[in-house]
Design a protein around this nucleic acid. Structure first.
Lengths: 256, 256
DNA sequence: TAATACCGAATGTCCAGACAATTCTTGCCG
DNA sequence: CGGCAAGAATTGTCTGGACATTCGGTATTA
């Protein structure tokens, strides 16, 4: 679809409120994100957009600027502005919240688990803080050895509030599967990655010599409303696992 | 210190290159991040800044805008602009592309570098692939020991195409600063994190025993048009550095 | 045919000014 | 002294224009 139709003031569906540069920005943004405008489609020149919308070019640029920063459109001086081509999906979906099961599936490896322990316990002080528990609450703990194509890959020790996972024994394959079924899938997580030398116990489980380097990943996952769903400590084999993440720059030229 | 002294054109230390709004922005940014201006200090009114710098108010606003977005300053209509009070908003904008310098600033630590090597070389086969070089092209290599508050923290080995960084000796503080000045700041990066046991050389540089666990971070950074800017291999001390990332669930692609 | 020079078009930067919306101060009045 | 209104100060939005820089294509030339 040509972008000019989007700018046509007759089919203005979005709320008109706010400054006019914001209206224009919202309009372009939603047209791009909804796929109404195909990637690669050129936008009309700024001067033309200005004329069509009865705005000044400065104002048009103010509307387009954030789209450039967000990577929705690309501008090249002398050439013009086009809707950004969609990056290959694999790369795009990285740095995104996935479970071990999903992660391995993406890498084309078969994942499996060996149960090391699961049950309901009284929380450790650390768990109480991390999960936001009150005195008397208990936690469900799940400890698994994770395998990829039958190779031990990681040890995963998860703790969840009991009311979110009342019965750890119901977890068959993926923990996230259960969470999602109950409408408890986290949408946000904070992850801390560090390196450690494996202790005797973990090294034995992973089948590597004691003292070998391992990736220690601590993850706290949150529900949309901010509640903590899960606090997980994992140890990955350093020689066999790469944690891949895609990073993006913030707003144009901003650093935080 | 009053902000007016910062704006005084007599003490202009930073590189003058680039558009004037960028010069002003860099100047304010560095003054704030280095703590020269105390939090809460008011900035002069935009009109006054414009007058002092012989810029128009539009241009001054363009310089201040990113600082507002980054949370370095706060603006209130009718009231004015002040340097933002330092809140530990460390966790807010994670999973965003930053340099070591910026990363440390965010953690409230002073970063420094020790040069280990820099110069122009013929690329290794790996670098040729990673950087997309042709036969005969050469690479600029920068190897630095990174310090946080005078503690060795990481070894950073960066390789860039020669036409992006023709002279590695011009890099003074932050590599990204130079890239940004030349309009080569990456907007996207792929990062692989793994764990290794430090070899003798790296362990010595980092001041830890050989065999200690280290975080190995491999980063490939891209320009908006997809060209590779930088291929960097870093080794972080496992006992002193946490790589923190915020993850989001795939759904709801709202980016702004 | 192939390389070069040129020109139009598009974005990047910048200006001087205007009005609107909000906040803060100041002085007046009860 | 307290409250309120007027006005100054400040940022938010927007205009219409100017010149610089880069890109692409076209015409010219070797």
């Amino acid at each position: 679809m040509d972008v000019r139709e989007i700018l046509d003031p007759r089919g203005w569906l979005l709320p008109h409120g706010g400054p006019r540069y914001m209206q224009l920005r919202r309009r372009l943004e939603s047209a791009i994100e909804s796929g109404q405008i195909a990637p690669g489609t050129p936008l009309p020149p700024e001067r033309e957009i200005a004329e069509m919308t009865t705005l000044s070019r400065v104002t048009v640029r103010k509307a387009i600027q954030p789209l450039v920063a967000a990577g929705l459109v690309e501008q090249r001086r002398g050439s013009g502005t086009i809707v950004a081509p969609r990056v290959a999906k694999v790369e795009q979906s990285l740095s995104i919240l996935t479970s071990f099961t999903e992660d391995m599936a993406r890498r084309g490896r078969k994942s499996a688990s060996v149960w090391l322990a699961r049950g309901i316990f009284l929380p450790s002080p650390e768990e109480m803080i991390a999960l936001g528990l009150a005195a008397g609450d208990s936690v469900s703990r799940i400890t698994r050895l994770r395998l990829a194509d039958d190779d031990p890959m990681a040890i995963e020790r998860a703790a969840l509030p009991c009311d979110i996972l009342p019965d750890p024994l119901t977890v068959e394959r993926s923990l996230y599967e259960v969470l999602e079924r109950d409408g408890n899938r986290p949408v946000r997580a904070l992850q801390r990655i560090s390196a450690i030398n494996l202790n005797e116990e973990d090294a034995a489980l992973l089948g590597v010599p004691e003292g070998d380097a391992g990736l220690r990943i601590e993850r706290t996952s949150y529900l949309p409303e901010g509640r903590v769903v899960e606090f997980t400590r994992s140890v990955y084999r350093g020689d066999a696992y790469d944690f891949v993440a895609e990073l993006r720059l913030a707003e144009e030229g901003t650093r935080t």
